[in-house]
Nucleic acid binder design. Structure first.
Lengths: 340, 340
DNA sequence: GGCTGGCACTCTGTCCGTGCGAGTGCCAGC
DNA sequence: GCTGGCACTCGCACGGACAGAGTGCCAGCC
C-alpha cells in the first residue's frame, strides 16, 4: 500500500534528521528538508500512526518526534542501504593498517582506525585462542625447577606461562620436551589440545612423563580457557562529544562496563564474519548498555573465524556508516592476519 | 614565626576541606571545622595574605577560597604527612596481585587495583625494553623466507616480530641461528644489544652471515626503540565522577591524551623507584594535562628500574592518600617482577 | 601589636512570572 | 485521502527580585 510506503519513508527521514541534528524533529522541518511530496499536516497524521505503533515518541508534548529503539531497529533492518565507503576512507584503512609490525600493533591500529572512522568507541577482540592453532611451542628454562612456556599461534598471537615443576629439571630434557610438545601440538587447534594429551603421554619416554604431564596440563588449563581472551578498546574520548549533560548518569556505567570487558566479550562471542550484527539500546541485556548500541562483526573467514570487532555508541548513531566502516575494517584485518 | 606557622595551617585546612567537599571554603566554615584557635576574622586576614602570595584564589568575589596549583605544591612539599595505608588496603594489594599468571595479567591487575584504591585513572607502564635484559631469543620459521623472532626478557615481557629474509631460509639453519643469537645476546641489556652485532657477525659462519645481519638489525631497530613501550590504562570511569559539568571541555582532551599514550610515556620516563613524583596542573607542559595532576613512581629496584606507574586525576585530589597507594603498589609490583 | 566582633558591600545562585515559539491535534473543505 | 487553518499545550529563555555566603575594613580590646 502506498500509505505504508510513505510512512516508512517518514520514519527514515526522522531517523536521518535526528541522527544528524540531535534535535527532536517536527513535521514542518521534515516537509522542508525531504521531498516527501506531501504537506506537514499529512506527515503529522503519519507520525501519529508511527507513534501509536511504537516507532517514534515525543519527549514531551509539543516537541518533535524521536525514534525509539524499535524505530531504529526497523530502520536498520529495512530502511538503510549500506553506505559504501569513500575512496579516501578505503585508502585510509590501507595506509593505516599496513606497516604494522606485530599482532599487538595491528589490533592497536585497528582500534584507532575504527574510532576515527566512526567517531565512536571502538572495540577489537584478540583472535580467540581456542579457535587458533598452535604454530610453535617454546620451552625456556628459567630456574632449576621453573620453565617458561611460550605459545605462538597461527594468527601471530603469543602467550606465555610460567610452569613450576615439582622436581628439578635437567637441562638436557628441555630440547627433548620442546620436540615432544611441538610434534604433539603443532597444527592442532587449541580447543582440541586437551584430546592430544593421552597420545602424548604414551609416546613420551618414561623419564619425561612427569614433566610432560605438568606442562601440558598447564597449557590446556590456562591457555585454552576462553576467559582470558583480550580486548583492545579505543576512542573513549568520543563518549565525551556532545552529550555533556547526561554524562555521569549514563556514560559512567558504560565506561565501567567497557573496562570490565567481560560483558563485551560475551557479546563478541556471538559474532560471525559474514554478517554485521547490530544491537540497539534495550536489546542489550546488560543494564549499562541500555541506551547504547553496538555494531559488531567477526573477522577472519567463514571457515576460520578469528574474533570480533565493532563500535559502541549512543543509539542515536549513523548506523549505515558505522556498519560499512566496521565491515570494511574487519575484511581488511581478516586478510592481514590470514597472510601472516 | 608563629604567624607563618598558623598561616600554613590555614592553607592545609583549606586544601583538606576543598578536596573533600569540592566547595570553595570560607573563613567561617574553616573556623568551625578546624581547631585553629582563632576567629573567622583572623583567618580572613591570613587568607588575604595567602591569596596575595598566590597560594589560594577566589573564583569570584564573595565565594570562598580555592587552592591554586602553587598552593597544592606547597601542601604536597611541606604540609602533608604520608598517610600510611590501612591494614585492609595492604591485604587488598596482596590478595589482588598474587595469583597473576603472566606479565600481562600482573599489569592488568595492578592498574585495576590502583584505580580502585585511589578512585582515579591509573596508568602502568610495561617494563621498559631498553632497560631489560634478554633472557631468550626464539626463532621460528613461518614460511620459506619468513621467520618469526620472539624475544623474552628477564621481566617476563614477550615481544615478537616477523622478519622477511631476502633469500630462502634453510630449515637446518634455524637451530644454528637460534644458538648464535642466544649466545650473543642472552643476558645482554637490550640497550646494549646493538654493540654486540659486530662480534656476532665475526663469529657467525659465512653461510649464515646474511641472515644474521637481517635478523639482528630487525631486533635492534624494532625492539630496542623505546617508542614502542606500552601503557596499560584503567579506571577512566572515575573521570566521570562528580564533575559532570565541565566535562566535554576538560575531560575529553584528557581522555585523548591518555589514549595517545605518548605524552604519558614521556612523563613516565622521568620516574624513579625511590621517590614519588607529583606533577600539579600547570606544571605539566602538555596542554591537555593542565588542570590535572599526576602522581607517579618507578617500580623495580634502584639498580634495576623497570618502569613507572601512577595515577592521573584532577588537581583537587587526595595527594597524601594517592602517594601512599602509588608507592605501596609500586613496591609490591617491583617485588613480584623481581622474583619471576 | 595582634586578635575580635560588627557592619556594609558585593556577588552568585535560585526562584518565579512572563512571553515566545515550536509543534501538535483536530476539523472543515477540496 | 490530502491540505490549510486554527486553537491549544508546553518547554525554554529571559529578566527581575531575593536570600545567602563571604569578604574587607574599622574600631575596640587584651
Amino acid at each position: 500500500m502506498a500509505h505504508d510506503e510513505r510512512r516508512l519513508e517518514v520514519l527514515r527521514a526522522i531517523v536521518q534528521d535526528f541522527v544528524s541534528t540531535n534535535d527532536p524533529v517536527g513535521s514542518k522541518a521534515l516537509a522542508e528538508r525531504h521531498d516527501l511530496g506531501v504537506s506537514p499536516a499529512t506527515i503529522r497524521n503519519d507520525m501519529a500512526v508511527l507513534e501509536e505503533q511504537g516507532y517514534i515518541t515525543q519527549p514531551h508534548t509539543s516537541a518533535g518526534r524521536v525514534p525509539t529503539d524499535k524505530g531504529y531497529r526497523l530502520f536498520v533492518d529495512r530502511l538503510s542501504a549500506v553506505k559504501p565507503l569513500s575512496a579516501a576512507e578505503r585508502r585510509a584503512i590501507e595506509r593505516f593498517l599496513d606497516g604494522a609490525v606485530d599482532l599487538h600493533d595491528v589490533l592497536g591500529r585497528t582500534v584507532r582506525l575504527l574510532a576515527q572512522l566512526t567517531r565512536q568507541v571502538a572495540v577489537v577482540q584478540y583472535p580467540t585462542l581456542s579457535r587458533s592453532t598452535v604454530r610453535h611451542l617454546e620451552v625456556v628454562q628459567v630456574a632449576a625447577g621453573r620453565l617458561l612456556l611460550v605459545l605462538i599461534t597461527d594468527t601471530g598471537r603469543v602467550e606465555q606461562r610460567v610452569v613450576d615443576s615439582p622436581v628439578e629439571v635437567d637441562a638436557q630434557a628441555v630440547p627433548e620436551l620442546r620436540a615432544l610438545l611441538n610434534s604433539a601440538f603443532a597444527g592442532v587447534k587449541l580447543a582440541d589440545a586437551g584430546d592430544k594429551i593421552p597420545d602424548l603421554l604414551e609416546t613420551a619416554p618414561s623419564h619425561l612423563r612427569g614433566l610432560v604431564t605438568t606442562v601440558s596440563t598447564t597449557l590446556v588449563e590456562t591457555l585454552v580457557e576462553p576467559s582470558d581472551d583480550r580486548l583492545v578498546i579505543g576512542g573513549t574520548a568520543n563518549l565525551a562529544r556532545g552529550n555533556a549533560m547526561d554524562f555521569s548518569g549514563t556514560m559512567r556505567p558504560l565506561l565501567e562496563a567497557l573496562e570490565e570487558q567481560v560483558v563485551v566479550l560475551r557479546l563478541m562471542g556471538e559474532v560471525d564474519p559474514s554478517t554485521v550484527l547490530v544491537r540497539i539500546g534495550e536489546e542489550n541485556a546488560h543494564e549499562a548498555l541500555t541506551g547504547a548500541s553496538l555494531v559488531t562483526v567477526g573477522y577472519g573467514s567463514a571457515e576460520r573465524p578469528l574474533g570480533g570487532l565493532g563500535v559502541v555508541g549512543p543509539t542515536r548513531m549513523d548506523y549505515p556508516g558505522n556498519m560499512a566502516a566496521v565491515r570494511a575494517v574487519a575484511r581488511y584485518v581478516g586478510h592481514l592476519l590470514a597472510e601472516s
